[in-house]
């Protein structure tokens, strides 16, 4: 069986990738399937990328990938039902949050 990997105009659009340890959970009872705000991304003055989720903060940095990733989307043609993959983007760098989250401490007793 042949499964073609094809590209089209705009296939080389750059995509971004964020990688962090563990997984996300929602404490508000919502599901991960629906749209929700995870947290806030910002850059520190030292150039690292910060992701603040509630009272926790992840510190990460931009890492250039050794080899790029092609982002593939499964396609199936209407008639034959044969599947294929279409390149919809290329990832060349990722923002890697390597460390565990750090608690953001406010003033003692100020909560």
């Amino acid at each position: 069986m042949l499964v073609p990997l094809t590209a089209e105009e705009g296939s080389s659009r750059p995509w971004a990738l964020l990688e962090m340890q563990g997984e996300l959970e929602r404490k508000d009872g919502g599901s991960l399937e629906e749209a929700f705000d995870v947290g806030t991304l910002s850059v520190s003055s030292s150039g690292s990328v910060l992701l603040t989720i509630g009272y926790h903060q992840l510190e990460g940095k931009r890492v250039e990938l050794k080899k790029p990733f092609a982002v593939l989307d499964r396609t199936s043609s209407e008639e034959g039902g044969s599947t294929g993959f279409k390149v919809i983007g290329v990832v060349r760098e990722k923002i890697l949050f390597k460390a565990r989250p750090r608690a953001l401490i406010t003033k003692p007793g100020g909560k």
Binding site: L5, P14, W15, A16, L18, L32, E33, E34, A35, F36, D37, V38, G39, T40, L41, S42, V43, S45, V49, L51, R62, K67, P68, F69, A70, V71, L72, D73, R74, F85, I88, V91, R92, E93, I95
Partner: peptide, 29 residues
């Protein structure tokens, strides 16, 4: 940079509605 972030200009990270789990990443040179 793919995620445009500027100092002093934070941005919200959000999940899309019905976030997809069927995309594949293929490492290529």
């Amino acid at each position: 940079q793919q995620v445009r972030l500027a100092a002093g200009q934070p941005r919200t990270l959000a999940y899309a509605n019905g976030i997809r789990k069927d995309l594949q990443l293929l490492e290529v040179d």
